[in-house]
Design a protein around this nucleic acid. Structure first.
Lengths: 296, 296
DNA sequence: TTCAACCATCATAAATTGCGATCGATCGCG
DNA sequence: CGCGATCGATCGCAATTTATGATGGTTGAA
C-alpha cells in the first residue's frame, strides 16, 4: 500500500469517475486504473463497483475510505510539522462555529491568526454545536466555538469554557414593549421566538427563565439566529440573543434583561492538535488549558 | 512522500542506526539511505543528524515522527477495516488497565474477545490512570480501564462509568485486628498503607474516610498494589483494595468495611475506534454508550 | 443502430527502487 | 600513532514499478 494509491482511491471516491479522478491527479486514466486494481489485489477486495455507466463504493470501499483519508491527512500534517519546526507554521486550520458566537470576535481572531501565520489555509464552517463536536472528533474540523446546555462539558474532545456575553431580548421597532431594560420575569406573558427545543441556545434561555421562576410560551421555534430575527422583525414576538450578537441587526430594538445569565460558550479541539491548531489555541489563550484530570 | 519512506524513517528513529533499520526493513542499507535522503530533500529539512558514530533525530525529525507514525497506523487501520467489512475482524487491540481493575474480569474478557476475533493481535499494558488517558488520546492504547477521583470524568476521550466493587481492608494474618467486618471509623487509629497522594486509588480511599468524618494516618505510600501487599504482609499496617482484587492474595486477611463506597472505574477509548476496538466495546457493553451531550 | 462515455488492457517508455561494491570518516584499542 | 572495525554516503547497474498512449469492450441514450 502506498500513499499514491490512497490519493487515487480518494479521488475516485470523490468524483465517482475514473477519468476525472485521473485528471485531478494529473495522470492518465490507465495509470490510475492500474494502481487501484493493484491495491484491490493486495487488499483482496474490490473497493469500487464499476458498472460501465457508474462507479460506486463497495462496502469494503466505504470501510476503507475514512482511514485512507486520515492517513493522507497525517502525511500532510507530518509535512506541515517539519515546516513548523523550521519556524514557519503551515498546513490547514478548519475552524467551526455556531452562527451566534459571542465570546470572541471571530473575524478579528482569524485576521490576527492569518497575519501571524500567513501560510496556513483557513476554512470556516458554520454548524450546530453537536454537529461541530462530532466533526472535531472525526478530524474534519480542528477547532470549534459552540454552545452547550448549562453545566455540561463536551465529551471526547478537549475544551475550554469561554465567558460569553449576556443574553438580551430583541423586538421589532414598533413592538409594544417600550422599556430599554426590564426584569426577566416581566416578559413572562410575551410570545417568544427561540431556537428549537433540544439545542444549546434554547436550553440557555430556558435556564434563565427557570432560574427566575417563570413559565413562558415559545410559539415559534427556529433553527438559526437569522430565522429568529426574521420573525422578530414581523413583530411575532420576542427573541433572545447574545448581547454581542444583537448589534448586527440595527433595525431591531434591544431590551436588556436584569437576571439573565451570561451565555456560556466552549472552545473545543481535537486530542492531537496540529501545529497550526496549537498556534490558534495559543492565540485564543487556551495554550495549556483544557482541564486535565488529576493523575491516578 | 510515500509510505515506504515513512516506514524507513520510523525504523531509523527506533534503532538510531541505518544499517539495523535496513535489516529490519529487509533492504540493503544503501536503499534506505537513498530513500531517506530523497524524503529529506522533498521536505527541505534533515530528519536525522548523522555523526559518523551516532544517529540522532533533528528537531524537524522529532516534529515529523508522531504524524508519520499516525500515518502508518491509519494505513494499517485502512487495511484492517477492509478485512472487517468482509466479515472478519483483524488488526490490533491495545488494552490498557491499572493494576487493580475490579469492575471487570479482564482475563475472561480478553479470552472471550480472542475467541470471537482470533485474528486480532491483542496487547495488554499496565499503567497509571492518567498515563493511560494520555496514551488513549495519543492513540498508543485503544481502550483502557482505569480509576478516577470521585465525581470526575476523563477529558478528551470517550468514556463509560463502570460499577466497581467495594473497597476492603487487607491485613497480615497475625495483625491485631480480629474482626471480619468493622465500621470504617473504627480503623481510624491504624497505620495505613495506601497509594501515593494524587493517585485515583488514594483519592477513593481518602473519600471514604472523609465521608465517615475520620482522619487517618498514611505512613506508607506505594505506587502499586503489589508493593502495598508486600508491606501489609510485613504487618506494617492496613491496606485498602477493591474487594474483587483482594482474593488474589490468599495469605492476607480481608476485613469488610461498613460505610466504604463502591470503587468507581471507567472504561475509556479514543474518538475514532477501529473495528477491532468497536468489537471490544460491544463485548463490554459500551457499544453505543459514552454519554453524548445533548445537541445545540 | 449509432454514438458517446467510460473503464480495462496491452505494449512500451520512463522513473523509481533496490542491489552490491566501495569510499571516507570516526572511534576504540593496542 | 597506526590499525581495524563500524557506519553512513555514493555510484553504476539491474529489477521493478509506474506512467503513457492507443485500443477494445460494454453500456445507456439518442
Amino acid at each position: 500500500m502506498e500513499l499514491q494509491q490512497l490519493r487515487y482511491v480518494v479521488a475516485v471516491a470523490e468524483t465517482l469517475n475514473f477519468t476525472r479522478a485521473a485528471e485531478r491527479c494529473r495522470v492518465v486514466q490507465s495509470a490510475l486504473s492500474h494502481q487501484i486494481a493493484a491495491l484491490e489485489r493486495e487488499l483482496g477486495a474490490r473497493l469500487f463497483e464499476r458498472t460501465s455507466r457508474r462507479v460506486r463504493l463497495t462496502p469494503a470501499g466505504e470501510a476503507f475510505l475514512p482511514a485512507a483519508r486520515q492517513c493522507l491527512e497525517a502525511a500532510d500534517r507530518a509535512r506541515a510539522e517539519v515546516a513548523a519546526a523550521g519556524g514557519e507554521i503551515r498546513g490547514r486550520l478548519a475552524v467551526g462555529a455556531i452562527p451566534t458566537v459571542a465570546a470572541v470576535d471571530l473575524p478579528v481572531l482569524l485576521r490576527d491568526y492569518r497575519r501571524r501565520h500567513p501560510r496556513v489555509r483557513i476554512t470556516l464552517t458554520s454548524a450546530g454545536s453537536q454537529d461541530l463536536i462530532e466533526r472535531v472528533r472525526r478530524g474534519g474540523v480542528d477547532v470549534a466555538f459552540l454552545g452547550l446546555p448549562p453545566r455540561t462539558e463536551p465529551k471526547g474532545v478537549r475544551s475550554l469554557r469561554l465567558g460569553g456575553g449576556e443574553l438580551v431580548a430583541v423586538v421589532a421597532p414598533d413592538y409594544h414593549l417600550a422599556e430599554r431594560e426590564v426584569e426577566l420575569r416581566s416578559l413572562a406573558d410575551e410570545p417568544f421566538i427561540d431556537f428549537r427545543a433540544g439545542t444549546a441556545g434554547r436550553a440557555q434561555s430556558d435556564e434563565a427563565f427557570a432560574v427566575a421562576g417563570v413559565r413562558r410560551e415559545v410559539p415559534f421555534e427556529v433553527s438559526s439566529a437569522d430565522f429568529m430575527v426574521d420573525l422578530v422583525r414581523q413583530g411575532l414576538g420576542v427573541g433572545m440573543l447574545p448581547a454581542a450578537y444583537a448589534p448586527r441587526f440595527p433595525d431591531l430594538r434591544v431590551i436588556r434583561l436584569r437576571g439573565a445569565p451570561a451565555r456560556v460558550e466552549h472552545l473545543v479541539w481535537d486530542n492531537r492538535p496540529s501545529s497550526a491548531t496549537r498556534a490558534f489555541l495559543e492565540l485564543v489563550g487556551a495554550g495549556h488549558a483544557g482541564g486535565v484530570s488529576p493523575p491516578e
